[in-house]
């Protein structure tokens, strides 16, 4: 099954690069969607079944829809992406990418033993929820409070039903 792993990784990187480098914004939005779906596939390959479903359901099926929605509503042909080319930028980009890739490789190398040791013989969902509802319970609940507060905040900003004093 290595073939599927490699394919998913290559697809993810390709779509991510397309997101960053494409000149049309809608193509960037769709490439972002495909990146998220492929990352869901990678989660499945790593054994975390529930997380892959949640990734597709939430990230690809709700967040990315909002992105695509907004990109489609706004006519962005009038504002093409920045196409400035400069040698210094290119050199710095390549150097930074190489350094980051090196750092990532070192970190993954450091952790490769732990990844293969994790044994998800019984349901991975159970393993996830065992941790989530006992050890990491308080971040879970506080994240709920955060979401509630964010909903309140967004409604405050977007609410057009109230009368405000005239424009200053």
């Amino acid at each position: 099954m290595m073939f599927v792993d490699v394919l998913l990784t290559v697809l993810t990187v390709a779509f991510a690069l397309l997101t960053v480098f494409s000149k049309k914004t809608v193509i960037s939005a769709f490439a972002l969607l495909m990146t998220l779906v492929c990352i869901g596939g990678i989660y499945y390959q790593l054994g975390s079944v529930f997380l892959s479903a949640i990734q597709v359901l939430v990230n690809a099926g709700a967040v990315a829809i909002l992105f695509v929605f907004v990109m489609m509503l706004i006519d962005l042909e009038k504002y093409p992406n920045n196409t400035e080319r400069s040698k210094i930028k290119l050199i710095i980009t390549v150097l930074t990418s190489l350094v980051s890739l090196g750092v990532l490789a070192l970190i993954i190398n450091n952790n490769i033993d732990t990844i293969t040791v994790v044994n998800l013989s019984d349901s991975s969902m159970k393993a996830l929820f065992d941790r989530l509802f006992t050890q990491y319970y308080i971040p879970f609940e506080l994240a709920t409070v955060l979401l509630l507060a964010a909903v309140v905040a967004v409604v405050v900003i977007a609410n057009n039903n109230k009368q405000h004093p005239g424009k200053e």
Binding site: P139, L142, A149, A150, A153, V154, V156
Partner: peptide, 27 residues
């Protein structure tokens, strides 16, 4: 005491502050 709590704290602070900053809607 935990990276996760730190991040949740910063995000709660930040997200609500964004709204507070734009509270004068006609300005």
């Amino acid at each position: 005491n935990n990276m996760l709590m730190l991040y949740i704290g910063i995000e709660t602070l930040s997200i609500l502050s964004y709204v507070l900053a734009s509270l004068s809607k006609n300005n």
